[in-house]
Design a protein around this nucleic acid. Structure first.
Lengths: 249, 249
DNA sequence: CGTTAACTTGACGGCCCTCAAGAGAGGTGG
DNA sequence: CCACCTCTCTTGAGGGCCGTCAAGTTAACG
């Protein structure tokens, strides 16, 4: 009945980001829940100031003890699971306003690596204290459940993508998703810079880097996009959408 | 660092299930958090008595408004997302003690179908009321976060499976996961009945039903398992494990 | 300017999908 | 209880998509 887009948009609406882009992400995350000024102060007191993370650095690694969630303030991250033998599966890309580390709540240990793909800044949200505050602020408690639920829905979308789609469809879905998320943050929806390598895209989409490269070239030949290294320009948005709807039947 | 098994075990430990198998699943879900008797009464009062669901019936469907989570009391369910064109992606199989419907919290609408694969019984857990109670019982609040987090970790495991593994590895992981989960519930780890069709297995694993059938036959020829329709007997547990570790390098 | 990482492109092969036919199992009604 | 129907499963043959291997090009950084 309801249509599930292969990759979902996340955590936070554009208005919140625009309104208050100089304050911390969590604060923005919480705006929609209508805190009163005092609750807001309490929340602020929990949040450590924006912490820089250099490109290539890990924010946390699988196996490390869990203490905090992290909200991306500015920048771009990837999350990935490393299997025994060193193979990497990218489980997600995270941009400003999105929350990372929710997988670690279940076992008090991080289960994946979070690595900055460009110089970034995050807010650290000590989970135990957030939980305490959530007890007093029902809207915050509910909001956290919602954010985690959204992550589950998003993962289901990726499962659909990995389980059912061909390479071209996966890349089409990926590009449209990125475009949408950049647009939500006030950036161009038609021209953006990929922060990740072809290999990381491939890992996320269940493809090899050569396949990613080939299909991007094919899309360019078809006049759907323009590729210049990591700069992507969307030429024919509808055409890309059509790949998604026509191929899967 | 930490190794992530492709499909994770879920929500509840065996001792809890065994101790109290005549009471409702949620009660069992909450045992580990150490409620006092009064809190326990409160919890019980929220839970509607076990509700039967006939094989083939839907517990909820994508698009329906969300009111409650459901805990499987007895039986077996699948969750699946239906894409626009009618293609099905099975996102999970659920057995006793497991929680369903957490994806719906984010939008107050169910995003997938939950269908009973055998005659089953569930407990309905009105989410708003559970949330209220969670506010008074910190351990319950935390437990809910943990259960949702575990779902995210599980989904990441499936993404790893779909993105990185070959067909044989996927099926090996699937069989080992089922075996483990049946064992946790006091059933045989070496001999169990598949509740789902080859097509549903294939949908979950990103394979076609013919491939599933072929590989099960191959495993049988190799003396790893015995297949008799939907009855699976694990002959060589180590051999199946080896498929997982040797193929992915 | 040199070195390294990232990307592109081609050729080839293998894995899995597709199509097809038949066998088997389970349920229903006579 | 058996016949019948339908759904499910098995097995084969062939083809296509994508992975693998390889070589060359470009970009990035010191």
């Amino acid at each position: 009945m309801t249509m599930l887009s292969p990759i979902q948009v996340r955590d936070i609406s554009i208005r919140q980001l625009r309104q208050n882009c100089s304050t911390c992400s969590l604060r923005e995350l919480c705006l929609p829940i209508g805190l009163n000024p005092e609750e807001m102060r309490e929340l602020d007191s929990l949040i450590t100031q924006g912490r820089p993370v250099k490109r290539g650095d890990g924010l946390y690694r699988a196996g490390e003890p869990f203490r905090s969630l992290f909200a991306v303030r500015v920048g771009f991250f990837k999350s990935s699971v490393i299997s025994e033998d060193g193979r990497e599966q990218v489980t997600g890309f995270h941009m400003s306003g999105e929350l990372m580390g929710m997988d670690a709540i279940s076992s008090d240990v991080h289960t994946c690596d979070a690595i900055a793909l460009e110089d970034s800044e995050v807010c650290e949200l000590p989970f135990a204290e957030i939980e305490n505050l959530a007890r007093e602020v029902p809207a915050l408690q509910h909001h956290l459940y919602k954010v985690m639920s959204r992550e589950i829905v998003r993962d289901h979308g990726v499962m659909l993508l990995l389980g059912n789609m061909k390479a071209e469809e996966r890349l089409a879905a990926f590009l449209l998703n990125l475009s949408q998320r950049f647009a939500l943050r006030g950036y161009s929806a038609t021209s953006f810079h990929l922060r990740m390598t072809r290999e990381e895209i491939g890992s996320y989409l269940g493809l090899k880097l050569e396949t990613v490269s080939r299909i991007l070239s094919r899309f360019q030949d078809q006049g759907l996009i323009k590729v210049q290294n990591r700069l992507i320009e969307i030429i024919n948005h509808e055409g890309i959408k059509k790949i998604l709807s026509t191929c899967q039947d």
